[in-house]
Design a protein around this nucleic acid. Structure first.
Lengths: 215, 215
DNA sequence: AGGCGCATGTAAACTGTTACATGATTCG
DNA sequence: CGAATCATGTAACAGTTTACATGCGCCT
């Protein structure tokens, strides 16, 4: 009876009408990430998985079981193609590369403003409760976290150094790809540095808090 | 025929045998986050959703449709209880608070070392391709991103300031809760600061790159 | 002989989002 | 009168992870 309800009913009818022309689904973020990976250089599904795990883990990572179906879909839509290359170990590799329309689609997407980053950081959920923990326990946990981030910082610094070298090769495509990768590696360094600084700040804050509350 | 296969078959048999005693599922991260939220102060499902959206968005966030079933499950297991409080607007609020066993379970979990943070940052996937974009386009995109992070930095600074004040109240529980929240707000500030610094670095790197490649 | 890294894929299970569903009160 | 906020919940859907499945070659 209410107008609100009528609007909702109207909407549902419309959506049913417009359902049919919508056959081909949109691309997933995962697929754009794969295109971006292939824009750097041709790679197999296995290579992409390794690259996600070792190079882009601080901002993007999916397992191989998401990559293989995504590649198959991109291939069907003509955005990537592959050449079979025999491997010394294991089955023949399918080395994928971007097609012109794949490059076009990727660059169109790259020019769009990015959505907000999504973060799930268990450490900070726990940090919410560090005020309730005996200070030495909380500090011990923060020191462990700090050590992990120091290690990772070194990893991204190493990556950034390598890409910077690659930028000075003659090939303009390789240089442009290396620039992009260097930027993300530098972000990795920054993320780890700011986390290390936070651990130090948190340790100091907890010490100060307990010094003041039971002097 | 292979021994490997036999091991796998063995394993699958074992898992079938041990399946039955496993009746009650483990808690999800989401549920621990809700417990951590309630450790700060009693809240309704709606409150928790608001709090996730405005206070913990930089490290944890789920929609209300995940929160209500999670709360119902926690209640059934005796980790939280609620009291119905009439609201001026809308249905009666169910204000949840931790039970002693809920507090215990939370603190046990908090003392465990945290898993790695999971991040999905579209911006950095796009940054991988910024070497292929005309420099002024890439720089324009980075400037937009920078502006967003400047805004957010101010938001977390404001939150940190408020919690710091709360730490100086007489109530020791409130003060301890405020400490935890201040730590996470400070992390928010650090995250935004390092992102702003990265945007500046990236803009400079792109300018330099193009100056050198077509001088 | 067995474990590990390479290499590809599929299926079930889990987790979370979007949309659906309802309804009171306040404000313009 | 409609939009927005408060307030609770469910159902369908999407995306990912874990486990399943297979098999070669190298190393110990």
């Amino acid at each position: 009876m209410t107008t609100k309800r009528e609007i909702q009913l109207e909407r549902s009818k419309q959506s049913k009408h417009t359902k049919q022309p919508k056959q081909s689904k949109q691309f997933t973020m995962c697929q754009y990430a794969i295109l971006a990976s292939l824009a750097q250089e041709p790679r197999s599904g296995y290579d992409i998985a390794q690259w996600f795990a070792f190079v882009t883990k601080h901002f993007w990572s999916v397992g191989h079981s998401s990559i293989y179906p995504a590649l198959a879909d991109l291939e069907q839509r003509g955005l990537v193609e592959y050449t079979e290359v025999p491997s010394e170990q294991g089955p023949t590799r399918k080395v994928y590369h971007l097609t012109p329309s794949g490059t076009e689609m990727l660059m169109e997407w790259v020019e769009l403003p990015a959505a907000d980053a999504e973060v799930r950081d268990e450490q900070l959920v726990k940090a919410l409760c560090y005020g309730f923990l005996p200070p030495e326990r909380a500090i011990a946990l923060l020191r462990m976290a700090r050590a992990r981030h120091v290690e990772r910082k070194a990893h991204y610094e190493e990556l950034a150094r390598r890409r910077e070298e690659e930028e000075r090769t003659g090939d303009p495509h390789k240089a442009a790809a290396a620039l992009g990768q260097r930027l993300t590696a530098r972000r990795g360094v920054g993320v780890q540095e700011s986390y290390i600084a936070w651990c130090d700040e948190a340790i100091a804050a907890i010490e100060e808090f307990h010094a003041q509350h039971n002097y």
